[in-house]
Simulated assay, not measured.
Amino acid sequence: MAASKVIANIPLLLGHNESYLPPIRGGSHALQLLAGPATMITVLGLQMLKKQLTGMHKSELWNHIWKFISKAEARDKLGRIVQYFCRFLQGALVHAPSSPLAPYKTVIAEVQTTLAWARRTNRWGKAMPHLPVLGQAVNSGDVLEAAQRAILITFLIQDHIYWLLKVGILKFESYSAVQWHRRNLRFITLSHVLNFSLCVRDVMRIKEKQQLKDPKYSGTKEAEESAEKSIYDNKRMMFRYVLTFAQMLHVSQVKQMDDWYVGLMGVVSSYIDVSKQW
């Protein structure tokens, strides 16, 4: 009740630091208050300039960007790019302690941690699309696909348990939250190995069907281009899994490496993921 009264007594318009028009304490305070409105006016000005130059407010690029960032997976991988770039910066600052960025090392670490937890919070339910595929793989006897999906689903479930441990909903006697997390990273590490193997298998199957003159993969320009694109995409993902495998070895502390190049690996592998969403 006391807290409610305090909130209710804050003036709406004037006289309080949280009012619409607070008393100005100095130039820096005024700049802080103007940051939001000034940015809004700037982007509005740019929008009006675009209308004058092109004759329309609508922008296909703008709409495409909005559709892109509306995807949960795209936002997640964009966040991962920033997260691993922060890891790169932290590693680089170890080797350059006199860098102008050195005073911001704590801030960089906080950004990395905050993004990691934001991504983990939004990971709930991510196992759902893998369950039907796991069932199909089991029924068809596809051991490699079934193993990969089973391990990935296990990782995601255990990742949720880590979240519950971290916020205090669960408590394990044998594991701290961090220990549980590092153990769980071994599962996603193995998942990357199996994903790499699946890509190798797909490439081999495509090439085999090309040799057998399968009309889906050869005989016409369209079929051959489609086959080559599939091979390229698989090889690209194989490169991605090599990078993520190394990242997980480091983050899980199985193999201690350097944050600066592990961070760059994370940026590159995340870019590959982001480009698939674009």
Results as ranks from 00 to 15, higher is better:
residue 120 R to M: 11
residue 104 Y to E: 01
residue 119 R to M: 09
residue 123 R to K: 09
residue 130 H to F: 14
residue 115 L to A: 02
residue 100 P to N: 06
residue 104 Y to R: 03
residue 118 A to G: 08
residue 108 I to L: 02
residue 132 P to D: 04
residue 122 N to Q: 13
residue 129 P to S: 06
residue 119 R to N: 01
residue 127 A to H: 09
residue 117 W to C: 05
residue 113 T to I: 05
residue 121 T to W: 09
residue 139 N to M: 14
residue 106 T to E: 05
residue 140 S to I: 06
residue 121 T to N: 06
residue 105 K to F: 00
residue 119 R to H: 03
residue 130 H to N: 09
residue 125 G to K: 04
residue 134 L to H: 04
residue 111 V to I: 15
residue 126 K to Y: 09
residue 136 Q to S: 09
residue 133 V to C: 00
residue 122 N to T: 11
residue 128 M to V: 14
residue 113 T to P: 02
residue 108 I to R: 07
residue 102 A to T: 11
residue 121 T to S: 15
residue 116 A to S: 13
residue 130 H to I: 09
residue 136 Q to P: 01
residue 118 A to I: 15
residue 106 T to I: 12
residue 98 S to Y: 05
residue 101 L to A: 02
residue 108 I to E: 01
residue 139 N to D: 13
residue 129 P to D: 08
residue 104 Y to W: 04
residue 102 A to G: 05
residue 104 Y to L: 11
residue 134 L to T: 00
residue 101 L to V: 00
residue 140 S to R: 06
residue 101 L to W: 03
residue 104 Y to G: 02
residue 103 P to K: 00
residue 107 V to T: 15
residue 110 E to H: 11
residue 101 L to F: 01
residue 129 P to Y: 00
residue 108 I to K: 12
residue 113 T to C: 06
residue 139 N to E: 04
residue 136 Q to V: 06
residue 98 S to C: 07
residue 110 E to W: 05
residue 115 L to K: 02
residue 130 H to S: 13
residue 99 S to T: 06
residue 107 V to N: 09
residue 114 T to K: 11
residue 119 R to E: 04
